[in-house]
Design a protein around this nucleic acid. Structure first.
Length: 488
RNA sequence: GCAGGUGUAGUGUAGUCUGGUCUAGCACGAGAGCCCUCCAAGCUUUCAACCCGGGUCCAAAUCCCGGCACCUGCACCA
């Protein structure tokens, strides 16, 4: 079993995620977040939002169902619906556009009919078997929603357009000032031909997008600190390793704002517990850039031996706002004396992929073979488990009593009295709970408990219960500092 | 979408080739209990599966067809 397979096995068994609708045989590319995963996902979103609010972001939330004109303006109707050609001899399928490009025909056909005409006229053959090709069919990567039959509606493939279409209102809200950072979390939908690798490639997925609106005439003043070093792979294949300030200064990253948001992104990934040794930034080649993008750096994560895109930080320039202005006829300019279209930098986060990165980064096996998810406490679904040393002699009841009191203070608290104490610790290790409180005979006589830390398996004994039953986050309890000092 | 492979309790698997004591075995898991003063110990006991539909046959987990799902490769990945 690969590392990835082992993590997926834990996730299904313990309840991080499950394939959806299994009683009807399942459906490709759709996953449920199970009880533990649902909490984990919220933690990821919370941390993401916190980091952006620290730099002044404002929040937004728009519908997933979106009328057609929005995607006409954004270019998704044209560029997101590919024409596909299938060889009727060997059944291989191709993107019609690239077949034509290979033949030296640089026309993007508008519809099926035109595509067939061009294919036949140029005698395009199947690259595999040499058969003459004569068909084309439209494959839309966006899901269309049926409605009254007049208005065409789509499920959004990205959350961004909801923000762009509200640029004017958001700008007013922001007292007319740029730069303006708008964040939105939510679902995105893409009709993937072949969804794969559990929650890595789904048809419905969780996104967290940021649109940074910048005055094209002014320096927005975003400048990275000399923070963590990270490998950067440029689109000319040159590799650079350094912090993002130097990456900007040496011209590896084109603008200071691009470098700045790359740094914020790296900071979030590290806070989530994703292994720095398994991350890199990679710049898109010109031919792989999205239709709206002029430059893009992905934060990638190494999953077994494949690099997976987690975050795309894309320079969308004036593309979207400009197109919405043209198509809607609304004035979307910024500035009174010298009206101008803002330009946009977009960090877009694939939350499900980040979750997979967290899980595979923090997964480890003890020498005994037992498995641990050593997630940062703020990320793990539960922070605390209350465990009686044994079930008998009133220990279970005493633990239950403490649990009820603790859970009122720290809701991310579990109780478990089944099996043996070792088994209970192990269960908590496997779902990433960083701290266990053990109720033993001293608890009955002296109201003191033992705290056990997940990664080191170290314990501190003789903790008075009343020092735990204090308001405020459990994570900030000074007792834990003691434990961390002891275990290091 | 194409080609090949696979599909057995919550998880991982045995059995499939060669149809028949398979009323489907094992391990982990989960539940109840016993035992136990700290890292999945042991004991008793319970729960739980042949992906779905059709066909062949006296008889199908096993063979055939269709569907669905998963895996690998190709293509796709805004």
């Amino acid at each position: 079993m690969s590392n990835f397979d082992e993590v997926v096995e834990i996730c299904k068994r313990r309840g991080f995620f499950w394939p959806s609708f299994q009683i009807y045989g399942g459906s490709a590319g759709l996953y449920d977040y199970a009880p533990l995963g649902s909490i984990l996902k919220e933690n990821v979103y919370r941390i993401w939002m916190e980091e952006y609010m620290k730099i002044g972001a404002i929040a937004f939330d728009s519908p997933v169902i979106t009328p057609e004109p929005v995607f006409k303006a954004s270019g998704h109707i044209q560029r997101f619906a590919d024409l596909a050609t299938v060889c009727d001899q060997c059944k291989s399928s191709y993107k019609t556009e690239s077949l034509l490009a290979d033949k030296g025909v640089n026309i993007v056909p508008e519809n099926e009919k035109e595509a067939v005409e061009i294919l036949v006229k140029n005698k395009v053959r199947c690259p595999k078997c040499g058969n003459l090709l004569n068909n084309a069919s439209k494959f839309n990567l966006m899901f269309q929603v049926s409605s009254n039959g007049i208005e065409k509606l789509y499920l959004r493939p990205e959350t961004a357009q909801g923000i762009f279409t509200n640029f004017k209102l958001l700008l007013t809200y922001n007292r007319g000032k740029l730069p303006m950072i708008v964040i939105q979390r939510g679902k995105g939908f893409r009709n993937e031909i072949s969804p794969r690798q559990a929650i890595i490639r789904q048809r419905e997925f969780n996104m967290a997008e940021v649109e940074v609106f910048i005055d094209p005439l002014e320096n927005p003043g975003f400048m990275p600190d000399a923070g963590e070093e990270i490998p950067l792979l440029r689109n000319n294949q040159e590799e650079y390793s350094g912090n993002l300030l130097n990456a900007y200064k040496t011209g590896v990253v084109g603008t200071s704002e691009h470098a700045y948001f790359m740094e914020i992104t790296l900071k979030i990934a590290l806070r989530l517990g994703i292994d720095k040794k398994k991350m890199r930034f990679r710049q898109h080649r010109k031919d792989e850039l999205a239709h709206y993008s002029s430059d893009c750096w992905d934060l990638e994560f190494l999953l077994d031996s494949d690099w997976i895109e987690m975050v795309g930080i894309s320079d969308r320039g004036q593309f979207d706002v400009k197109n919405h202005q043209e198509l809607s006829g609304q004035n979307l300019n910024y500035g009174e004396n010298e009206p101008r279209i803002p330009r946009v930098l977009e960090p877009a986060y694939g939350i499900d992929r980040m979750i997979m990165a967290i899980l595979t980064s923090t997964y480890m096996k003890r020498e005994s073979g037992y498995k641990v998810l050593s997630m940062p406490p703020e990320v793990s679904p539960y922070i605390l488990a209350i465990l009686p040393l044994q079930k008998k002699d009133g220990l279970s009841e005493k633990a239950q009593e403490l649990f009820t009191a603790m859970r009122a203070l720290e809701p991310r608290t579990l109780f478990d009295d089944s099996g043996s104490i070792g088994r209970r610790y192990s269960r908590q290790d496997e779902i990433g709970t960083p701290y266990c409180i053990t109720v033993d005979y001293d608890t009955l006589s002296k109201d003191i408990v033992t705290i056990r830390e997940r990664d080191s398996q170290k314990q501190i004994k003789d903790i008075p219960i009343k020092s735990l039953l204090v308001s405020g986050h459990f994570m900030e309890n000074p007792i834990l500092k003691l434990l961390n000092a002891n275990s290091s």
